Simulated scan of single mutants.
Amino acid sequence: MRSNWRSAVAVVASGLAVTVFVAPAAPAAAQAPSVGVHHLSGEQSVAARWTPEAMRAAIPLDRLLPRADTSALTQDVRRGVSQVVQPTNSLLNDLLPMVFPEGGGEWPGGGAVEATAGRVFFTYGGRQASCSGNAVTSGNKSVVMTAGHCVKLDGAWHTDWVFVPGYDNGSAPHGTWTARATFATPQWTATEDINYDVGAAVVNPLDGRSLTDVVGGQGIAFNQDRGQDMYAFGWPAADPYDGSTMIYCSGGTFDAIISDGIGMTCDMTGGSSGGPWFLDFDEGAGTGIQNSVNSYKINLITLWMFGPYFGADAQGVYNAAQAA
């Protein structure tokens, strides 16, 4: 039943590029698709354009998309955004929190996550928009993990992409880091498949220093067991939040309803997309192992947030980014 529902509401495509070798009796061979990559200028003038006023005015990405009615789950899932609209069945959302207590609130704990996590800004469709992201340990000390739709959407890569770790109401306490390249899974690059809504950016040095030398980096892991307790962070900027501060949720996770990802009770809204999910999170130290990102919500049950499972394709994005 679950697989039938998923196939009815989600666009699933393999994205495989098939290469045929011309030789007697040789079978067709499938070649794994490459990680998508988009190179940016990364000039410091891009950072200068992201003034405190511009950052405060940036619109959560979901608000720049056409609103879908509550029956259009396929549209919501295909886009892979944290699109939240008022459901017609409000009673359902009133009753469910009694069974699944709703999570979400300003992070009170401090620690490393207040520097590694941050807000992402970019230009999409000629408008200034926002998501969230997180700095992770990497070979080049310059990798930010985020959602695939926070680097590319509707067939176009975002431009003017910057990462502001520790963003605080227009303030950039650790600087504004320009991206020189952004990456997405092959499946997101080809068809924007929600199951693979994973992206990354490699940022330029700032004042001669690499990103994680300045803010530190969280660990990252792939192919981990499902159903574990996790913490999620982000900068939601749609009601009831305004994007000014970091919000978090925590609790048990479960298999997603309409994708192959994972879910969590969380009331974060648009703008939180791309924010990190952590395993083994230490509240005192503010450290954990990143294992997903905020990806999407569905209209009928807005108290749940969903993220992609970090498998081999997500690992491929990370590997390509840290080698760039």
Rank of each mutant, 00 (worst) to 15 (best):
M1G: 12
R2E: 09
S3C: 11
W5T: 12
V9T: 14
A25D: 07
A25I: 03
P27I: 01
A29P: 08
A30P: 07
Q31C: 07
G36L: 14
L40F: 07
S41K: 11
A47N: 07
E53Q: 15
A58V: 06
P60S: 08
P60D: 07
R63I: 02
L64V: 00
P66E: 00
T70A: 09
A72T: 01
L73F: 06
L73P: 04
D76A: 11
V77R: 00
R78Y: 01
R79T: 06
R79K: 03
V81T: 09
S82W: 06
Q83D: 07
Q83N: 04
P87C: 09
M98H: 09
F100H: 14
E106P: 10
E106Y: 10
V120N: 00
V120I: 06
G126K: 02
Q128F: 06
S132V: 01
N134G: 13
A135H: 04
V143H: 06
M145S: 09
K152Q: 12
D154H: 02
H158G: 09
F163Y: 14
V164P: 12
V164Y: 11
P165N: 08
Y167T: 15
D168M: 10
P173M: 09
P173V: 07
P173S: 13
H174N: 10
T178V: 14
A179R: 11
A179M: 13
R180T: 13
A181K: 01
T185A: 06
T185I: 00
T185W: 04
T185E: 00
T189P: 00
A190G: 01
I194W: 00
N195R: 10
L206F: 03
L211V: 13
G219I: 08
A221C: 13
Q224A: 15
G227F: 11
Y231A: 15
Y231H: 12
P236D: 10
P240E: 06
P240H: 08
G243C: 05
G251D: 05
T253R: 06
T253Q: 03
D260P: 03
D260K: 10
I262D: 00
I262L: 09
G263M: 02
C266H: 02
C266Y: 03
M268P: 02
G271F: 02
G274L: 11
W277C: 03
F278V: 00
F281E: 01
F281A: 04
G284A: 07
T287A: 00
T287Q: 04
Q290L: 15
V293T: 08
Y296N: 04
Y296C: 04
K297G: 07
N299M: 11
Y309S: 03
G311D: 08
Q315T: 02
N319A: 08
N319Q: 15
A321Q: 13
A324T: 14
